[in-house]
Design a protein around this nucleic acid. Sequence first.
DNA 1: TTTACTGTTAGGAC
DNA 2: TGTCCTAACAGTAA
Length: 263
Amino acid sequence: MPELPECEAARKRIAAGALNRTIEGFALGEVSHVELPTESERKRLIGTQFTRTRRHGKYIFVGSVGGPWLHIHLGMSGSVRVMDTADPPADYVRFTVEFEGGTCLHFRDPRKFGRIELVEDVDAFIADKELGPDALEMGDNAFAEVIGKTRGAIKSALLSQKKLAGMGNLWADESLYRSGIDPETRADTLSSDRVQTLHKELRHVLQAVVDTDAEYGQLPDAWLIHHRSDGDACTRCDGTISKKTVGGRTSYFCPDHQVGTSQ
DNA sequence: TTTACTGTTAGGAC
DNA sequence: TGTCCTAACAGTAA
């Protein structure tokens, strides 16, 4: 379930279990329609070790000083796990990095929207994709500037990886819920106070989820994440949760306390 | 059997 | 030129 916090949890799992081990080989699962490193790219990595990780938004990188980076994007349903080679394999494993000593890194991807590729220069990659600043590292002024010149819905703006990298559907809804902003509100009509509130809540949401390693069960029951269904009681007022489509994505919100900008 | 889905992106509309 | 929106991608689960 990969938005920024889920990707950060994945990065931490890789950093904890897959660094400083010599790469012995790779295994491919059922890989039609999945973007993976070519055979010659895989050969380049054999005998080397990963020594560091990076993450920008939803993009995860594993690499070594002077060597190429393995870029991992989890797509809509991807996940990674460090396992013992002897452990029973999970379903939908598309790609496995096998390390010396019986450890391996599994990339699972049921819906095949994820991808793995070799990248020489992470900063150039980020520039090439035109990604915005990482959502957790963006400054107040930069956030206000980007939101202030967006004419579309605020929800769509939050989801645009070119404006800020890392927000996804769930945590965008959660941030707007806490901020009392209707997801359909035109971004450039929000007062600077409301933009500042939104930025504060957005960071709070992402950081709190990062702190639980994206274990949703550890998040407070009052969070929208536990009430994403039509007709649930709002946990912040007397309203009722409803849903609508904004920018082509389902948005859960409370019409009583989440309001737009009045004329 | 039908419908929805946590991400990205090409192509078209404005 | 730029910004925004929609549909499509593939597979599963409710």
